[in-house]
Design a protein around this nucleic acid. Structure first.
Length: 629
RNA sequence: GCCGACGUGGCUCAAUGGCAGAGCAGCUCACUUGUAAUGAGCAGGUUAUCGGUUCAAAUCCGAUCGUCGGCUCCA
């Protein structure tokens, strides 16, 4: 690695540790150095902070740590501005996050969007004041005393949770000091481009039981142009929001009369049915059978399953002839009854039993979000009953299936493995077998995954598949959950080779997750331009004028006979107008029919992506459509 | 549920205490159309709901419902 310093001299170093050496050298061992330099041919703005304990931070905005530092420093400036304007405010925490930062405050009075502008101006002042940022450390007792003296009770609580023998680090800029591990920029003036974006509530330490604090979100970049780019990108992404496109394309709607209960419109229903057709074919191939269980079952069942005790707040209940009933929030108990309705032999296992089940859950009003988070949705559920020995193979089969489906749509996804939580039930041995089984399956398939320690369901560990929406929020879609509890509660059995009764292992799994959520993600993923096989309307026929209406109808029928989803726009409008509308509807193909076409028998075809693609015969249009399966 | 913002014809938005408006969509008429908007006319509103302040409320205040951005929870 070569570094060219500002004075023009060039130094060569082996690795990043060597950069630390040059910094120390230039600063005579104990100082802060900033230099613009060249690393491997790229000019970068290198900034270092060398502290007493010789920790080194490399701060270039191109680098993830550098972004964190920019944003973290901006978050300190935010806190400094808030303390200046509202001195009695208590500070909580203020980390850098993906795309920005936030800071949580305990304000004396309510803080609103209008106050945000005032704070932003104060922040600009602080940047101008050009405070150097210094790091210092205290031992634990002194650190606690220091924050107590300042009345920062949240900070005191944070320090109390830190290891006893650790030196506690602080960062100081002007009159402002904050408990912080760093790293930070050299000076407040290095913050060039920032913007406060929103005000939100957030519970102290993320717990509903604690006080709700005021969280201020913002973002910060090295250059103004980068901030502009970022804001433009967000605006662009919002254009593909599934709620907006869902309305524009006539796919679905959610009305005030049913908060969280989506209505599917004709085109959305076509899309949904196409996904279901695809799902059925795939599952038949994979050896699944399909069942359907009632939407409402009696209290006794939900008591057996444990839902009545553990999930009642999320269930809609009613009485029938004086007896309590609940609308199903999950399909498994009903499925369990189906399994139990006849005796099973080990020879039948694994049994893969699918159900496209409509479930209802009373989600908190604030959690609702378009199709992504609703109160009734269709799970593409399946339960697999099997022996312990079959765990790994079955999991592998499901993981492969999920990967096949997501790949078909071109989704990037990430996988999380969640392990035994605090409130778990069942023996440690079972948990170990189950977790190891999930792990082995993922490892054997060479999947990348992160482990979510303690985040499993209380009845078993799980693998979750997460997909991203248009502005980078991730949504859990596919999941595979191992369950020992339900077979136990329902006393599910199979007869083994030894003639004895055994308890099967059960997995719950979904591929789409919920069809509603999956459609939401699909809309955003394709920005409404569905591939031909999924497009609610594949061809739109546009007659030049009313004279060609009859001919166009014949053509329409010919395509319909081939099973192609086809519409015709026979309104008394100019062709340019009809094309514009069809384009805005994002129909993959348009066929324009007039004198020329009626004579030649060829069709003038326009594609959504390429515009006019010339004259095609009926057969070659069909080919175009089919090649996109 | 909690914190903040918002709610005006089907849609997108205007009207900052003084006559509720525009564009698109819809309907009618004329034009009979050749690759992203033909023209003219008509109709469409209890300004989310309920209550209050005021000579006067879309506008100010309160409550309720809903939506949006977060938190918690979750497919």
């Amino acid at each position: 690695m070569k570094i060219q310093l500002k004075d023009g001299s060039v130094r060569k170093y082996e690795n990043l540790v060597s950069i630390f050496e040059v910094a120390k050298e230039l600063s005579e061992g104990l100082a802060r150095v900033a230099c613009a330099g060249e690393v491997d041919g790229n000019i970068v703005d290198l900034r270092y902070i060398l502290s007493k304990d010789c920790t080194l931070s490399i701060l270039t905005f191109e680098d993830e740590n550098g972004k964190l530092a920019f944003r973290h420093t901006t978050s300190h400036i935010l806190a400094q501005a808030v303390k200046r304007l509202y001195p009695n405010t208590k500070l909580a925490i203020g980390p850098a996050i993906k795309d920005g930062f936030y800071y949580d405050f305990d304000f004396e009075n309510t803080f609103t969007m209008e106050d945000l502008e005032v704070v932003e101006s104060e922040m600009k002042k602080i940047v101008k004041e050009n405070f150097e940022i210094h790091r210092f450390t205290l031992n634990r007792a002194d650190a606690i005393a220091f924050m107590q003296e300042r009345g920062e009770k949240y900070k005191v609580e944070l320090i109390e949770d830190l290891p006893e023998d650790e030196e506690i680090s602080f960062y100081k800029q002007g009159e402002f000091v904050d408990l912080c591990a760093g790293p930070h920029l050299l000076s407040t003036k290095n913050v060039k481009a920032f913007k406060l974006t929103s005000v939100a509530g957030a519970y102290w330490r993320g717990s509903e039981k604690n006080k709700m604090l005021t969280r201020i979100y913002g973002t910060s970049f090295a250059k103004n142009s980068e901030l502009e780019d970022y804001l433009t990108r967000i605006e662009e992404a919002k254009k593909r929001d599934h709620r907006k496109l869902g309305k524009e394309l006539g796919l679905f709607t959610i009305m005030d009369e049913g908060p969280g209960f989506p209505f599917f419109l004709p085109k959305g229903m076509t899309l949904k049915n196409l996904l279901i057709d695809y799902w059925r074919k795939l599952h038949e191939r994979e050896g699944y059978v399909e069942i359907s269980t009632p939407i409402m079952l009696n209290r006794e069942l939900w008591e057996t399953s444990g839902h009545w005790d553990h999930y009642k707040d999320n269930m809609y209940t009613t009485k029938i002839d004086g007896e309590d009933f609940a609308i199903k929030p999950m399909n498994c108990p009903g499925g369990m009854l189906v399994y139990k309705s006849v005796p099973h032999s080990y020879k039948e296992l694994p049994i893969r039993m699918g159900e496209l089940g409509l479930v209802h859950r009373h989600e908190k009003s604030g959690a609702l979000h378009g199709l992504m988070r609703v109160r009734c949705f269709t799970q593409d559920d399946a339960h697999i009953y099997m022996t312990k020995e079959q765990i790994t193979d079955e999991i592998k089969g499901v993981v492969r299936l999920i990967d096949e489906v997501y790949s078909k749509f071109g989704f990037k996804y990430h996988v999380e493995l969640s392990t035994k939580p605090e409130n778990s039930i069942g023996s440690d041995e079972d948990w170990e077998i189950a977790t190891a089984g999930l792990k082995r399956a993922l490892d054997e398939l060479q999947m990348n995954y992160v482990i979510n320690e303690g985040d499993g369901a209380f009845y078993g560990p799980k693998i979750d598949f997460h997909l991203e929406d248009s502005i980078g929020r991730t949504w859990q879609c596919g999941t595979i959950q191992l369950d020992f509890q339900l077979p136990l509660r329902f006393e599910a059995e199979y007869i083994g080779a030894d003639g004895e009764k055994h308890r099967p292992i059960m997995i719950h799994r979904v591929v789409f997750g919920s069809i509603e959520r999956f459609i939401g993600i699909l809309i955003e993923h394709y920005a409404g331009k569905f591939p031909v096989w999924l497009a609610p309307v594949q061809i739109k026929i546009l007659p030049i004028s009313e004279k060609f209406s009859a001919y166009s109808k014949d053509v329409l029928m010919k395509f319909k006979e081939k099973g192609i989803r086809c519409e015709m726009d026979e309104r008394d409008e100019k062709i340019g107008y009809k094309i514009r509308e069809a384009q805005l509807e994002k129909v993959p193909y348009m066929i324009i029919l007039g004198e020329k076409e009626a004579q030649s028998g060829m069709f003038s075809v326009r594609s959504r992506e390429q515009g006019d693609i010339g004259a095609l015969s009926f057969e070659s249009v069909i080919e175009h459509i089919e090649s996109d399966k």
